[in-house]
Design a protein around this nucleic acid. Sequence first.
DNA 1: ACCTGAACACCGTTCAAGT
DNA 2: ACCTGAACACCGTTCAAGT
Lengths: 239, 239
Amino acid sequence: MTSPSIPSRGRPARLDRAKTVETALELLDEVGLEALTMRRLAERLGVRAGALYRHFTTKQDLLTAMAERMLGDVQASPEAADWAGRLRALARALRRALLAHRDGARVFGGTHSVGPHTLAFAESVVGVLREAGFGDEDAGRTLMTLVNFTLGHTLEEQAAAAPHEDGAPDDPGRLRSAVQAGPYPHLAATVPVLTSADFDAHFEFALDLQVEGLRRLRSGAEWVLPCVDRGAEKRKAGP
Amino acid sequence: MTSPSIPSRGRPARLDRAKTVETALELLDEVGLEALTMRRLAERLGVRAGALYRHFTTKQDLLTAMAERMLGDVQASPEAADWAGRLRALARALRRALLAHRDGARVFGGTHSVGPHTLAFAESVVGVLREAGFGDEDAGRTLMTLVNFTLGHTLEEQAAAAPHEDGAPDDPGRLRSAVQAGPYPHLAATVPVLTSADFDAHFEFALDLQVEGLRRLRSGAEWVLPCVDRGAEKRKAGP
DNA sequence: ACCTGAACACCGTTCAAGT
DNA sequence: ACCTGAACACCGTTCAAGT
């Protein structure tokens, strides 16, 4: 009584890679990375844990597919005028894509996708830089720096947003009391910023630093230095 | 027959926090973070796993103590002349401390120590900046950026150094073949840098970007812009 | 071909009971 | 006070066997 054109009428749904990744991201948003287990994911898909290994060789393989899927949602704003604006837009788009899912930064940071979405993002960044006149080495290293700093930033941001257990004081509280307990005059002055939850501002600050550094690199550091740094730097004494 | 001055003559050694953390770091170097379990650490200490919970409330607590211990090894070079040199030295010292232990970056990144070594490092960075004339907000945000980018960098560096199983191609190989399989002209040109193992150069590049960005921020961006960017940027069209 | 059942070899953590 | 023994409630992964 099994018709060959509808091979599995009895079972509710078959697994495929795309649907599994989608469900895994939903589950991630609900329970977080720590509680995202193969067993729980299988349960949600109406299947036993072992079945997942037909489509993913390992849990790491699933996580990589999730990271790749997340990068599919990066969409930079319409078209900035100059290379600096375009670079900023790409960094912001990556940040948004990582923030879009609970523990998204940790998933992304723990994997190394070479899928089309990930490569397309990298291609965009490197493209902006090369077309702006940067050399291949600088363009490649800038891509690494941009991804590293965006990852590091969103890692911190999502760690700060993570729910802390009942009685335990949150990170800002622990930092504040530790700093005022010891001899840290400089830190004490900056504790308000360090514990600030305005992560947009933190991110934009770091972004500014990169872009301004690139701007100077591009215009050739040597003959620009005397203009900007007139008297600002102590001269190193020769031997 | 138990003398009160030597309470535990029969047992070979008692546990204390410092010795446990030391042994944990040794074990980490040998087996890596994935294989660093409470049971294995207990075995090495001649004790059962449950005993560790007399000194550490949780495994996370132990990892935080390990991160704090690692930061005790940061030692910046003798004394650089200017703030930029001092900042570079501090960033390099942090990188070295994280690289000193297998998976050191992952341990550090997964924890938030507010212990004396960690705070002393933060105090140094913020101190250099404030004494150079940076405001409290900029100093605090620069500390965050410096730590984030150093962490992100060493995370990548140690991931690249991790032993890959038998037949599996390493990350560089997978990236190379993925890039040449698709339409990624810009990426293809930068693949040599992206797969380069010269992490010192990558780190120094990123460090330069931060420092040059800071230099410009310090001298006041507005009236410097026309000097460096004369004609280099397209003007944004007004609405 | 795809999934189940059941197992293997582990985990972190808790806690009565010993010494 | 400090540690053991033993358990609890899980993990990721494998693989014969079913359909």
